[in-house]
Every structure is written in C-alpha cells, then in structure tokens.
Amino acid sequence: MWKTLRPAIVSFCILSLITGILYPWAVTGLSQLLFPAQAEGSLIIHNHQAVGSRWIGQSFSDPRYFWSRPSATSPMPYNGLASSGSNQGPTNPALIDAVKMRIQALRTADPDNRHPIPIDLVTASASGLDPQISPAAALYQVERVARTRGLQVTMVQSLVTQHIERRQGRLLGEPRVNVLELNLALDGLSHSQ
C-alpha cells in the first residue's frame, strides 16, 4: 500500500505547488509586467477617478443616457459580485412578462418612436454584466437621447457611429457598441456645448 500511497502524497504536494502556486504566481507576475492595465480590470479613469471598467457594463435608466441591456443580477442590476443570467426558459410566462415590461419602459421613455425594438435591448444577457449593445440597439435610442439633452440628432448619431466596434479582425464576434464609453463621450459632448 505504501508503494502507492507515497508517490500519491509526494507527487500531489509537489505538483500542487507547481500548478497551484507557482503557475498562477508566474502568470500574474508576467501579466503585471506585460499587460498591467488589462490584468487589473481595464479600468476607465475619468477626472482622476475610476468610473468603471471597459468590460463591465453599468445600469442606465435615465432617458438622457443610452441604456444597457437588461441585467438579471440581484439584488440590483449590474451587480459586479453576482454575475448571472435570468435562466428563464423560452416558454416561461415570466420571461414573456419581463420582456413586455421592458418594451413598456422603452416606449414610455420615447413615445413617438414606432420602430421595432432590437431584441438585445429587451432580453437579459448571460452574465448580467454585458458591457455592450448591438449597433441597432444604440441607433434605436438616438432620438430619445438627442431630444432629452437638447442635442441635434445627427450629432448623437455620428457619436454612435464612431463608437461602433466592428467584428474583431473584420471576422470574429458581432458588431457592438460599448454603452459606458458611449455615455461618457455623450457627457463630454453636452459639457462642451
């Protein structure tokens, strides 16, 4: 028995140190050296203060801002400590009610907008922290944002166009717009007016 136990215990301990301590430590060291900003969470610094991360979305409900996707995290949306999707099934009545309420909220904030609503704007993301919306979802909100801020529609529209990220390498993923970055740029635009 000792013939099996000894290699089990000793190899377990040594390889644990290599893969569980040395490996993450080495990767952390190299990451901090090579990619310090990314390794620490890609923070967005605004007026010397961290206002968020490029990769973690924030909740917006003011009509003056572009809204992010619905978030299923609890107790508040976009809770960084509780990433989660809704896990509602496609035939669950609760999902259909939730989508109806989200449509209602968007229509109330922008009663004259009769365009069909892009689907990502009324469905909860997988992580509850999705930093992005589709270009269609951003363009859908342009008129509301322009009106509530007293800006020209074309100005806001061109700001959105500037913020459209194409597929990576023109091929991978989907086109998208980072909501936090767009809203920060929007505030910058309003201030400079």
């Binding site: 496609p90 609503i117 990502d120 992005q132």
Partner: peptide
C-alpha cells in the same frame, strides 16, 4: 413589436441569456 432578424447592425435571434459580443 421587437426586431429579432439578423442584420448588419445586430445578431438578432434568441438573445435571452446571450452576450452581445
């Protein structure tokens, strides 16, 4: 009154529980 079709501006489809990117 929602738009689930695929286009150059959105992926469309069953987006509940999926990420935009």
């Amino acid at each position: 009154g929602v738009d689930q079709t695929v286009s150059s501006l959105q992926s469309g489809g069953n987006m509940e529980g999926k990420e935009t990117r």
